[in-house]
Structure formats: structure tokens, C-alpha cells
Amino acid sequence: MKEKLLSDRLITLETTPPKLPTIDPMIEKIKKTEAYKYIDGFTTTDCPLSKLKYNSIIAAYKIQQTFNKKVIATMSMRDRNIIALQSDLLGANDLNVTNILALTGDPAKMSDQPNAKAVVEGSSLKLLEIIRAFNSGMDYAGKEFKIKPKQITPFAVSNSYAKNFSSIEKKIYKKVKNFALGIITQPVYDLEIADKLLEIRDKIRNSFSDERKNFDMILGFFPITKLKTAQFLHSHVPGIYVPDSWIDKLIKAHKISENEEYKVGLELSRNLFNNLQKKHPKIHIMTANRFEIVKELF
């Protein structure tokens, strides 16, 4: 994944493991829709919205084995203390899951499990520090491993929009300072916003003189095919901006029919996806496991 990130093109696809004792049905869906043919790698989420799901690291391993494509496994600070984080990293390393997305995690109060409590010994920055220690051959306590772990490529996340973009810049800088090599953004729906994010990338790159200047941004992309999705993202998800022009067009289409709504949304999404690829062909596709839509974008 590191080589792809440092090259000209990287298209990843997000997968959310199910609340099942197997991910085989999800793998079969990826096969059936042929989504794997259009991408360079995958990510696996880690109990998003604090809902119980299949383990992200084991899911990453099984997807890598099935499709022979690298997977970025998400690890949340919400559910693990420093011991568990390092234990999971050791196991992931043995399974050759060496691309890790460091995430603080959604609040435990959102969980579907009664009285679930968050651990959160620190933000995602602490996991980045732990990964840096592993890459130096040591645990977080500074004790050397008898067998040095395989090099881990660390990723982190960022909002894609803010009224004041300097706040986004500061947060990304802290993550890159802690050696995050890839920054995956929330979905982008405006080319001018993409330009602002890439300007931030360039500015941060120029502030480092070591390997951190090689970090890159992966623009998030979530195709919108329903009016209610556009309205929800625009009004209720912080850090995402959906243009009024998109909502206006979807309102008109919604009044005609459900098929027209889907058609208009897909056209808007496909045009944006193509333009983003021309501008910066490093994109992370999120579909809420609607893998069938991937081939419609290309």
C-alpha cells in the first residue's frame, strides 16, 4: 500500500464487516459485483458508530488472502488500552496486515451494546506513536522486540470541510508530525474544497525535511443517489459539505420518481469522481457496502 500511496494512483474501497461470525457473505458480494476489479486496495472499518461488528484486522487478513490486494485495517482507540493496541498490532503483523488506520472512534454512548464503556487512553495520535515505536523495533515502553515487526504504514483521517480550514490544517499537521503517511478525508463534493485540501497538503509537506514530507492525502468519496442522503450529510455530519446545487437537482428528481432521483444522483457522483481522478487520483470510495455501485462510477 505504501508504494501505491507514493505513486500516481491509489483507489481504495471501504468495507464494513457485518455483525456475523464470518465475513464470507461480504466477500461473495464483492466478488459478485466485481468491485475488486476497479480498485487498488480495501479498508476495513472497526465497529463504526460503536456498533458490534466482525473484527477489522481478521477481516483485512481474509480480504487480502481472497483478492491479493492490500487492506488498511482500522483500529479504534475507543475499545483498546495500550496493552490491547500493541497486542492487536503484533497479531496483525504476523498476518501481514501492516497498513493501519488510526482512529479515535465514535462515542461509546452510540453503541448497540448495553452499558458499553469507552477505553480511550488517548486520541489516534497515541496509536501513531505506538506504530512509530514498532517501526523502530520497540514496544511503547521502549523495550526492544526479539524479532523486529514488519514495517507498518500508518494512516489517519481528517474532515473535508470547515468554515475555517486552518483548523483542519492544524489537525492534519499533528498527525503527519506523528508520521501518518496517508490522510483519508471525509467525502468531498466540491472541486474547490479538493483544491483547498491539496493546498493544505502542500503547505504541510513543505514544513518537513524528512520522510514526513512524502505524506499524501486520499480524498474521500461517497456517491449520493438519494435526496435524503444528501440532506443528512449536509445538515447532520460535521466536516462534510454538500453543495446546494446537488440538493436542488435531487429535490427536482425526487419529485419525478425514485428512478430519476437515482439517475441524477449517480450522474452527479460519477462526474465528480471523474473530475477528482483528473485532479488527484488518490481516492477512498465509501459505499456503505453497496459494492454494486463501484463499477457504475468507472
Rank of each mutant, 00 (worst) to 15 (best):
Y189C: 01
P187C: 10
D195W: 00
R205N: 05
G265N: 08
W246V: 08
L198K: 03
I193W: 02
P149H: 09
I172P: 04
Q231K: 15
L268C: 06
L197N: 05
D139Y: 11
K203D: 03
N214Q: 09
E260D: 05
A180E: 02
A162V: 00
E129R: 13
I172D: 06
K163P: 00
G182F: 11
L127A: 13
I184Q: 14
I251W: 00
T229M: 15
Y173K: 13
E144H: 05
N214T: 05
F232S: 02
S207K: 13
D216I: 09
A162D: 13
V237G: 10
F179Y: 12
S235Q: 15
T185K: 11
K171N: 13
V237I: 15
K175A: 12
P154A: 14
P223K: 06
A133K: 13
I256Y: 12
I184A: 09
H254M: 06
D216L: 06
S235C: 12
E260A: 05
I251K: 14
A162Q: 09
N178F: 07
K255E: 14
K203R: 08
D195I: 10
I218S: 03
G142L: 03
K148N: 11
L266C: 04
G239H: 11
L266K: 07
D195H: 09
T185S: 14
A133M: 14
R132H: 15
L197K: 04
T153Q: 03
V157K: 00
D190V: 00
I218F: 14
H234F: 11
I251H: 10
A162I: 00
Q186W: 04
H234R: 15
M138I: 15
L268S: 02
R270V: 11
A194H: 06
F134V: 07
K263E: 07
N271L: 04
K150C: 02
H234Q: 15
K143W: 03
E199N: 08
N135D: 13
K163D: 12
N178E: 12
L250D: 07
F155W: 05
R212I: 05
F208N: 11
